[in-house]
């Protein structure tokens, strides 16, 4: 019976990692669509969001099944609780990708505009955080997860800067306020993706260490690994 539980947990891990890969791919795709003003690709992201939604429901049902049938404890219980929350974060990241896609569709249909902010750095950092959070999940690496937590502040700061820059740009080109607000929204959605990646990283730390680090800014101290 115990071996059966281990098999179920292994298959659940594969499941959540597949969802992670699926969501990561969508974020990559929508960022590319934004860079190239590609409304078609953005449309694909919007129209296929149901795949993420269905996957999320399937993962949750799997978690509930294991909880009901095996009553796992200790590290196994922490794993399932973490997967339930990570599952939710991944689905929300999928939604944020859709939100960005809708903004891209709006902007693409209008005359091009001089972008007051550099989205390249922000998008790259966000994508990197998401990738690292998923890598920390694959390898149960609390140290890597902590790097994601620390990187979140950088993305938050960029978003604040973007807000100020867009405000100035609206004064300069008030006739383009629609596009500029949409640009600001994209900054907001990227920042939210980074937040969800941070949540995932915090869940990984909980899974590994058994300690909840949420709401503690930079308070994480690993028991087992040295800071580098």
């Amino acid at each position: 019976m115990e071996r059966h539980l281990q098999k179920e947990l292994e298959s659940l891990k594969k499941y959540i990692l597949s969802l992670g890969a699926m969501v990561e791919e969508r974020v990559r795709k929508v960022i590319k669509a934004f860079e190239t003003r590609d409304a078609d690709t953005a449309g694909e992201v919007v129209n296929s969001d149901w795949e993420v939604d269905e996957f999320e429901v399937a993962v949750e049902e799997e978690c509930l099944k294991i909880l009901a049938l095996h009553q796992p404890v200790a590290v196994d219980l922490r794993f399932i609780c973490a997967v339930i929350k990570i599952n939710n974060d991944l689905e929300r990241i999928g939604d944020e990708a859709v939100n960005i896609a809708e903004r891209v569709a709006y902007i693409s249909k209008r005359p091009s505009i001089k972008i007051p902010v550099d989205y390249g750095v922000m998008a790259e950092k966000t994508e990197h955080m998401l990738k690292q959070s998923l890598d920390s999940l694959v390898n149960l690496d609390a140290g890597l997860a902590n790097k994601v937590r620390l990187a979140d502040d950088e993305v938050d700061d960029i978003h604040v800067e973007n807000y100020d820059k867009v405000k100035v740009a609206i004064r300069v080109q008030p006739e383009r306020v629609g596009s500029l607000i949409n640009l600001l929204q994209i900054s907001r959605h990227l920042e939210r993706i980074a937040d969800h990646a941070t949540n995932i990283a915090e869940e990984v730390i909980y899974m590994v260490e058994g300690v909840i680090h949420r709401h503690k800014k930079n308070g994480y101290q690993s028991d087992s690994s040295e800071e580098d």
């Binding site: 115990e2 590290v75 196994d76 922490r78 058994g210």
Partner: peptide
């Protein structure tokens, strides 16, 4: 003990990895 036991032996026993 049932959420985060301190020792690996305990964890292995209660999670059935014994």
């Amino acid at each position: 003990i049932f959420t985060r036991p301190s020792l690996k032996e305990t964890s292995d026993y209660i999670t059935g990895r014994f």
